[in-house]
Simulated scan of single mutants.
Amino acid sequence: MSEQVAKSDVKIGGRSGVFLRLNRAFGLLRDVARDRSGASAMEFAFLAPILLAIYISSFEITTGYSVAQKTLKAAGTIADIVTRQETVNKAFLTEMVDTAEATIAPSPAPGLKLKITGVTIDGGGNAQVLWSWDESGGNPYTKGSAVAVPDDLKKANSFLVRSELSVEHTMLLFFGSPAGSEASTRTITINREFYYRERLGNDVPCSDCG
C-alpha cells in the first residue's frame, strides 16, 4: 500500500512540475507583452523616416505651387507692361525676360521660355497674330495665323497682348517615385499665359517683330 502511494505521489508531482513550468512560461510571455520599455524607440525608428518624407514632400509641393503662382503673376505683369506702350521693339521685349526673373525671384527660373504676341481681332471676332516674339529673338507664330482667344475677350475691332511664360521646377519627392520609398527628383514644366487689352490707342505695334 505504501508503495502505491509513493508511486502516485511521484506521478502527481511530475504533472505538477510540468504545469508549473508552463505557468512560468506563460507568465514570462505576459511580462514581455506588458513591458513597454524600448517600444517607443522602436516606434520612433519606424515612423521617423515616414514623417520626414511626408514633411519634405509637403514642403516641395508647397514650393512648387508658389513658383506656379509667381509664374502666373510674371506672365500677367509682362502683358500689362506691354499694353501700356504705344509701340515696342525686340530690344524692349528682351527686357521682359529680366522682368519675369525678377518677379519669380528668389525662386530660380531655369529653362525660362517667353513668348509675347500681338493679337488683333477683326469686326467678326476673328483673332489673328499681328506680330510675335520669343526669348531667342525669333517669331514663334506666323503673322496672320489664327489665335485661340477666350470668348469673353473676343471684342470686335480690338487688340490683345498675350504673354506665354514657362519655367522648369525640380521637386524632391519620396512617394510615388519609381524607387518606391526612396527619394527621387522630378522636373516639371510650369506653363502660364495671360491676356491684356491695349491701354493706349488701337493697338501696340512692334516695329521690328515678324
Results as ranks from 00 to 15, higher is better:
132 S>T: 11
120 T>N: 01
79 A>H: 06
19 F>M: 10
18 V>D: 03
168 E>P: 01
194 F>M: 15
144 G>F: 14
24 R>H: 08
162 R>E: 02
132 S>F: 02
13 G>K: 13
191 N>E: 07
16 S>Q: 09
130 L>D: 13
113 K>C: 12
98 D>Q: 06
52 L>M: 07
132 S>A: 10
137 G>L: 11
93 L>R: 12
122 D>Q: 04
28 L>N: 03
99 T>P: 05
141 Y>D: 13
43 E>L: 07
43 E>D: 13
75 A>K: 08
20 L>S: 13
12 I>P: 03
175 F>V: 00
6 A>V: 04
90 K>I: 08
195 Y>F: 05
124 G>A: 02
198 E>P: 01
201 G>Y: 04
181 S>W: 09
169 H>C: 11
97 V>S: 07
111 G>Q: 10
132 S>Y: 07
114 L>G: 07
67 V>R: 05
25 A>W: 01
129 V>S: 08
27 G>M: 10
123 G>D: 15
131 W>K: 11
76 G>A: 11
206 C>A: 12
147 V>M: 01
208 D>Y: 11
41 A>M: 02
71 T>W: 03
8 S>W: 04
10 V>C: 01
78 I>P: 06
125 G>A: 11
139 N>M: 05
92 F>H: 15
48 A>M: 12
191 N>S: 13
44 F>C: 12
46 F>W: 08
174 F>H: 02
118 G>D: 10
153 L>H: 08
66 S>G: 01
106 P>H: 13
142 T>G: 15
101 E>Q: 08
87 T>N: 07
63 T>R: 10
199 R>C: 02
172 L>G: 02
136 S>T: 11
204 V>I: 00
97 V>D: 02
102 A>Y: 11
82 V>H: 10
163 S>G: 03
195 Y>R: 01
36 R>I: 09
115 K>Q: 03
122 D>C: 07
145 S>T: 09
138 G>Y: 14
170 T>R: 13
210 G>V: 10
112 L>E: 05
60 E>T: 14
2 S>K: 15
51 L>C: 13
193 E>K: 14
192 R>M: 09
46 F>S: 11
185 T>A: 13
134 D>M: 01
100 A>S: 01
4 Q>N: 15
50 I>A: 06
79 A>R: 07
174 F>V: 03
43 E>V: 05
148 A>W: 03
121 I>K: 06
108 P>T: 12
184 S>T: 14
111 G>S: 06
160 L>F: 00
177 S>N: 15
166 S>L: 00
139 N>A: 05
140 P>F: 13
7 K>F: 05
8 S>H: 06
10 V>Y: 01
170 T>F: 01
